[in-house]
Amino acid sequence: MDWLLLLEKGFWFGLAAVGFAILFNVPVRTLLSVFIMGALGGIIKNLLLQFEINVIIASFAGAVLIGFISISFAHNKHAPPPIFAIPAVIPMVPGIFAYRMMLGLISLAGNINQAAYSQVLSDTIHNGLKVMFILMSLATGVAIPMLITRKDSAKEIRFRKVKDNF
């Protein structure tokens, strides 16, 4: 396993997350947290991918991690969790798969011979389903902490060990 490559990927994930955070105009005090969360989520996703785990599950794991970190950052930096979580998961959106799905759909609509048709059709469905499931797992992943604690606001969630620190 190439740790340096993994760290480099983490850096790029973090940078992409910060770019989106700026685009969404997050408060300045949250930028560093967004970078850290984006990087950690991306590292987990790539680590799992190296163990040949399905990209959908890997993305889900990254998003769950981001969801949990967003709760503790929300307490520290006094901002709602989605402000950290949404920019941080966006780098995991499967842009390349979405692009290939689109290409496939276009060639299916054009003039295409029967032999190529079934191959393109199966590729397109494969890519499209991946996009759909990855998007769903990202959205579910960041919501998991709120779902399992059954709270309406992150302010009511306290992790036992850090209870007295703030």
Binding site: W12, L15, I22
Partner: peptide, 23 residues
């Protein structure tokens, strides 16, 4: 205020480059 326009442009550009590197 929002972020200065040039900061938004530069960092979004960097985010795009990061996406490209990841792909």
């Amino acid at each position: 205020p929002h972020y200065p326009r040039i900061v938004t442009l530069l960092l979004t550009g960097l985010a795009g480059a990061a996406f490209c590197r990841l792909a």
